[in-house]
Amino acid sequence: MMQQLHKGHLGRDSSPGAQGEHKQDKRMLAATIQDRAFKHISLLAALAVLALVVVIVYQLTTNAWEAISRYRLGFVLSSVWDPVFHDYGALPFVFGTVVSSLLALLIAVPLSLGVAIFLSEIATAKLRRPIIFLVEVLASIPSVIYGLWGIFVLVPLVRQSQPFFQRWFGFLPIFQGPPFGYSLLAAAIILAIMIIPTITSLSRDALAAVPNHQREASYALGASHWETIKNVVLPYNKSGIIAAVMLGLGRALGETMAVTMVIGNMPQISASLFMPAQTMASLIANEFGEAVSPLHVSALMEIGLLLFLVTLLINVLAKFLTTRTKHKGVQK
């Protein structure tokens, strides 16, 4: 439509006579060529985004091919990671990644939902703005600074708290082991702090999408403030909240620096929260620079590929969930 509009334009300074018309035709032709060129340049840039996806998948797959074809499914089932004897299995890292991320969710989800509920249901407008700002600041801190704080503040705190847990709950295997400080627990706590802003802001959006008449109807039925939140507000946009949690999980799974700095980096599967472990991302950060043998590099690339695929899947699912809620909102 827009192109038709400009094709039918009249030159502002068009002079009468054949020469003027000729000039104008030429200018119009030039404009059409420039238009086409600009459109194609912008198209090329848009295609670059898709090329990025292709490059990532292609490079990870081809570089990981040696490890993929050698170990096949056994790669994620074997718990031996031995660069000296060229034997690579990813199980300890899958364990470390999954457990640290799930523990992080366990801490972060209740807190984030609490903050989101506070912001959308309880806080006055005056209080809301500074708290949103603080949560945004929390999101903007570089992960290496979280790691730095983790090493010098959080890890000593975890180390000092361990005797307490052992004294009272020492019969549970999750609290046993020597007090290193660098541990699965430290990683989970730091991940929780890092994903709270993500889950909070997205679930706040989800709660904000709940129409006010729903709340009013609940109050009219005699429900209390909390009963309204629990029975009406939270269930109304469940998929939005689930999407928020999933995006938080996606972030936790791929987080590298902060985790690498506090988890202790030992490829082991241990029941204790206080034992060092290692995640897929922290393994790459630690070993990729020193990997010499092609198989070692290839195994690390395969870990990267797995990480990519898992986070991709989670993000795609979360995206479908949020678009579904959007449609639901339109219908109502």
Partner: peptide, 24 residues
Amino acid sequence: VVRFFADVLQGVPSIVIGIVAYAV
């Protein structure tokens, strides 16, 4: 499609981007 992948790419772990850039 571009929109979809632009959104999804934002969730790719930065360490993965790092090793891809290494390879490329």
